[in-house]
Design a protein around this nucleic acid. Structure first.
Lengths: 237, 237
DNA sequence: CGGCCTGTTGATGCGACTCAATTCAGGTGG
DNA sequence: CCACCTGAATTGAGTCGCATCAACAGGCCG
């Protein structure tokens, strides 16, 4: 086996979808994977195009978006290194339901649909992982729906800040600081709003002293108030 | 095998999740299933409670809701006879992410988690069906997210009307008529709005002559305009 | 240096929620 | 059989959140 394939196998081993797989299965996966690279701004697949497989991000960042006729867009997921996307497209016949766009120069592995399905039918552990992955996605979308319909922008932003802090530091505490993983306009689309509103909402959080922010670097001053805000409901009483 | 079980097997055979299964697998499923009935208004499971299994509706109607602290609620799915719900709860560890409430007196079959998982690992066809079911759910939630973030209430309502017409008549054409499957307040929560707004929006559709409506019975007069409306985007240019 | 993209800030308008009053249907009890 | 109650649906007036439009500042690159 080529040196490169051995490396690639180690990469796959760390990915949730492939965790706990034996060497044989990983080798099969490595043989299946096609390397695909995309420059910043490139469209990886278009909503409505026939679904041919799914991807793993090795490096870079990808957004999955729905866009409306008048140019507004909503970001369903922001996907980073080690994460998979378009998994569900493998099982539902029909086209991709969203568009995938590289936000940075991105390097991915692509798994074509049919061979992957064959592999899946021979690997119960991989199947279990896939079921768990889809369930997590459902959970995530459920949360987004809840937030979008029941919470206002400030609550969604507060929640996002807490989530990012947790993701990057493993905990939430005063004076922790982190970088926003994406441009503010993209973040706005992810939160279901637009740049101007995000800017204002962020400014209000800063003015109230709950957080500090400078060029995309956030510092949490008062986690308690943030958590209170995040739970807050729309059109409060 | 008891007469009742034979009947129940025939019921299961018609359900998407169990389609294409052989007799043995269906027998196993029948042995697993527990009959559970709920009066109108009863809570079937609560968000946050440990997930113990999933359900099939034999008769009645169930809503899956997220509710906010101040009492507003958002309906993620309205589930009717022959449909399954809480499937994903079987794979993601952790509690139910939503609350299930019977909107009418409802009769269900309940499949407990662990035994079903064992059965699943011995039935590749059932596994494939489950993957497809979860993918469809993902697709559905994706659509809801898109609508909620990019479309206004009138567009969501127009789309819902077209969907219901298609579901009940198999086609969309002028002068087709159908019953709303649920009370208007519930429909409003499903569309991500409230009763008053739904009432007004419906009134405007009636006034413009696109549809007629009387006590929950809808008549479509002009499908073309409805479809145009349904595609329309929020805050139109 | 001049364009371009991203982000910020202000003024304005529209959609949708809130609150409140009214009507109507269905179910209950005297 | 009718008075009563409760919950659902409708309608009006008022407010609020957020999108739109527009102007402008800063950073990056050709």
């Amino acid at each position: 086996m080529a040196e490169k394939d051995v490396q690639r196998k180690e990469v796959l081993r760390k990915i949730y979808l492939f965790s706990g797989l034996d060497d044989g299965a990983l080798n099969d996966l490595v043989r299946l994977a096609l390397k695909r690279s995309f420059p910043r701004g490139a469209t990886i697949f278009e909503e409505g195009a026939p679904a041919q497989g799914f991807y793993i991000i090795l490096a870079g960042q990808v957004k999955l978006v729905k866009s409306s006729p008048d140019g507004k867009e909503f970001i369903l997921r922001l996907v980073g290194p080690g994460e998979t996307f378009a998994e569900a497209a493998v099982f539902a016949e029909g086209p991709y339901p969203v568009t995938g766009v590289a936000l940075e120069d991105s390097y991915t592995l692509f798994f074509p649909k049919e061979p992957f399905l064959r592999l899946l039918s021979n690997s119960p552990p991989l199947t279990r992982n896939m079921l768990a992955t889809l369930s997590r996605l459902l959970f995530h979308l459920t949360r987004q729906l809840e937030d979008l319909s029941l919470k206002e922008v400030s609550a969604r932003l507060a929640q996002y800040i807490l989530e990012q802090c947790l993701k990057q530091h493993g905990r939430i505490a005063p004076d922790l600081t982190f970088e926003l993983p994406t441009a503010k306009t993209q973040l706005a689309a992810y939160l279901g709003t637009i740049g101007e509103t995000l800017s204002r909402t962020l400014a209000r959080l800063k003015a109230s002293g709950v957080i500090d922010e400078d060029k995309g670097r956030i510092t949490i001053n008062n986690p308690a108030i943030l958590e209170n805000l995040a739970g807050g409901s729309k059109y409060h009483k």
